[in-house]
Structure formats: structure tokens, C-alpha cells
Design a protein around this nucleic acid. Structure first.
Length: 213
DNA sequence: CCAGACGTTGTT
DNA sequence: GTCTGG
DNA sequence: CCAGACGTTGTT
DNA sequence: GTCTGG
């Protein structure tokens, strides 16, 4: 499962440069990323994300981790939206296109969820670059839910089969990783065409470094 | 028709 | 109060 | 991080 | 909102 990940101080600068974020966007992204500097990200925390806005421009936004679909309303089983969101922090790439909770977002509201290391089974995984870990992005989905009091922006990200390193610590799922600017752009612009799409495959064996917690 | 679900991961 | 699951 | 559980026997 | 199970 992928319910914890970390940012790093060099993450904002990387994405500010990759997407030429304007000063106000840069300020927002810095602030959102900075809120992860101590404990990292956990479900229901507000996390930084990137999407393409109505004008086709790339923009940063903050959203709660745990997707809340537009049709959600209180019920006996999920009296509070947080309870529902606690179960939607990941979306299976094999089924997200058809699940009621994810399919609209899968088709029309994709985003990037930047990170530096993700956590599985008492280990952190990332792509080492020198003595740091490289900023990467999860393949994310976002939603906007209209409440009586306020609107809730939320995100989740896709999972797939594990690669060799993740399997080696005893896990059978891993997040979909977008490790190049080209993959990130394609995810935002085109999305994926079925579970066999190259974007949704496990990360290349041997490309991740493992750091025991 | 109508109530209820709508999710993921990991596992004794 | 403390542990576990997400 | 934070919400939710924290238990046993016997079987709808 | 839409689908499924009863």
C-alpha cells in the first residue's frame, strides 16, 4: 500500500523550473511542499499537486489526500467524508477507468502528485541522484466536491504491480511513477489508454534505491 | 422498484 | 493510554 | 499523521 | 450520479 510519502527541500525548485511556475504559483507550491517537511504526507493531509487548468496552463494546487467524488453524501457507512476518503488514498490502475469513485477523474481530472520518496513496509524507495533523491511524481487524479460550507479539493494516485525492489520487501503493489518530464506531460495531456498503457507499468527493475526506515 | 454501495492494501 | 491500519 | 480499536464464544 | 442486489 502506498499511504505515506516524503517531499524534500529541493522538490519545489525542481517543479517550479520544470513547469516555469509564475511567482504566485511558486509561492503556493513552496508553501504546500513546506508543510510536508516534517512528517511527510499521510492520508487526509493537504498535499501539493499540479494540473492543467481551463486555459491549458499548468498550475499548482493543494488538495486533501483521499479522493472524494462529486456524488458523495453522508451515509451510515461513511457518516463523515473523511471516513470515505480514508479508503480512497490509492486507485488501482487496472480498474480506475470504470470504478464509480474514480472514472470521471480518470478521464478528465488527472494531475501530478510530486514526491521524493515513497514508503512501503518500513522502507523508503526513490531514485538516487548523487547523494539526494530525485523529485518524481505519482500519476494522480483530483476531484472537487461541493459542500454546504465549503468545497473540498482532493487527490489520489494510481497503483500497479510491484517492481523487483518493492517485491523484495514483501509488497505486491506500488505506486505508478512518472519519472520523466515527457511521461508527466503525457499523463496530464493524454492520460492512459487501458491498463496496458506503458505509463501505468511497474517501474523498471533496478531503478529504485531502498532506504530502510 | 428502492436501498445501499461506491475503496485499498495486506493477511490468520 | 497505546497500538494498528490506512 | 490521526481515527479507531482495545474481545470472546459460538453460529444468522 | 449510477449501478447492483434483493
Amino acid at each position: 500500500m502506498c499511504h505515506h510519502y516524503k517531499s524534500a527541500k529541493h522538490l519545489p525548485e525542481h517543479f517550479v523550473e520544470e513547469y516555469h511556475l509564475r511567482p504566485d504559483q511558486r509561492t503556493l507550491f513552496d508553501k504546500l511542499a513546506d508543510e510536508l517537511k516534517d512528517g511527510g504526507a499521510w492520508p487526509l493531509k493537504s498535499v501539493p499537486a499540479l494540473r492543467i487548468d481551463d486555459a491549458g496552463e499548468l498550475e499548482a494546487f493543494g488538495a486533501e489526500w483521499g479522493l472524494l467524488p462529486r456524488w458523495w453524501k453522508p451515509s451510515d457507512k461513511s457518516p463523515k467524508r473523511e471516513k470515505f476518503q480514508r479508503g480512497t488514498f490509492n486507485a488501482r490502475s487496472e480498474t480506475a477507468a470504470t470504478k464509480p469513485t474514480f472514472r470521471d477523474a480518470f478521464k478528465r481530472r488527472r494531475c501530478l502528485v510530486p514526491f521524493v520518496e515513497f514508503h512501503e513496509r518500513d522502507h523508503y524507495f526513490g531514485v538516487r541522484r548523487g547523494d539526494e533523491f530525485e523529485p518524481l511524481a505519482f500519476a494522480g487524479l483530483w476531484e472537487s466536491w461541493q459542500g454546504a460550507e465549503a468545497d473540498v479539493l482532493s487527490v489520489t494516485f494510481l497503483t500497479t504491480e510491484p517492481n523487483a525492489e518493492v517485491r523484495s520487501v514483501g509488497h505486491d503493489r506500488m505506486p505508478v511513477l512518472l519519472a520523466t518530464p515527457a511521461d508527466r506531460r503525457r499523463w496530464l495531456v493524454e492520460g492512459a489508454d487501458g491498463a496496458d498503457d506503458p505509463l501505468l507499468q511497474p517501474f523498471a527493475d533496478g531503478a529504485l534505491s531502498i532506504r530502510p526506515k
